[in-house]
């Protein structure tokens, strides 16, 4: 069970990291340093958020609906704090572009959707 979940987590996180590095390198090459750094920062925290989500999954199972809701709410709030870090950093320093950081925190979601859609298109189920 853990290995299945671990493999999925590793696959998605490594793809997200590769995309973040490619986008950041392209941004650096084009001279848009704050955008590149902002995206990379957002993507790193997106990966961290996904990892925390996977680690906290067992804590949300085997409870009644009400307690599950409370635990999910707690999990969301904790991970909100994690995702807030790159956005707060981007608002406080000129080193990171805020909008690039905001886009970066959706890297994992983008990878999941792209991964599934490309598998469907290529028929590699």
């Amino acid at each position: 069970m853990e290995s299945d979940l671990g493999r999925l987590q590793k696959r998605i996180c490594s793809k997200a990291l590769i995309i973040a590095i490619i986008v950041a390198s392209a941004g650096m090459a084009l001279g848009a340093k704050p955008i590149a750094k902002g995206f990379l920062l957002g993507a790193l925290f997106s990966i961290l958020n996904f990892t925390l989500m996977a680690l906290s999954l067992p804590l949300r199972l085997n409870f009644g609906p009400r307690q599950t809701f409370v635990r999910c709410l707690g999990s969301i709030w904790c991970r909100y704090l994690v995702l807030a870090v790159p956005l707060v950093l981007a608002t406080q320093t000129a080193m990171f572009d805020f909008f690039a950081a905001a886009v970066g925190i959706f890297t994992v979601q983008g990878v999941i959707l792209f991964d599934q859609c490309s598998r469907r298109i290529t028929g590699n189920q």
Partner: peptide
């Protein structure tokens, strides 16, 4: 089949919370 269920739950929840992350971005702005 708990491994398959966990995987589906994880990716499903990652997408499901996108709306909450939109709210976080606006809140921080």
């Amino acid at each position: 089949l708990s491994g398959e269920v966990f995987k589906s739950m994880l990716v499903g929840q990652a997408i499901a919370e996108s709306a909450a992350i939109f709210a976080l971005v606006v809140s921080l702005v």
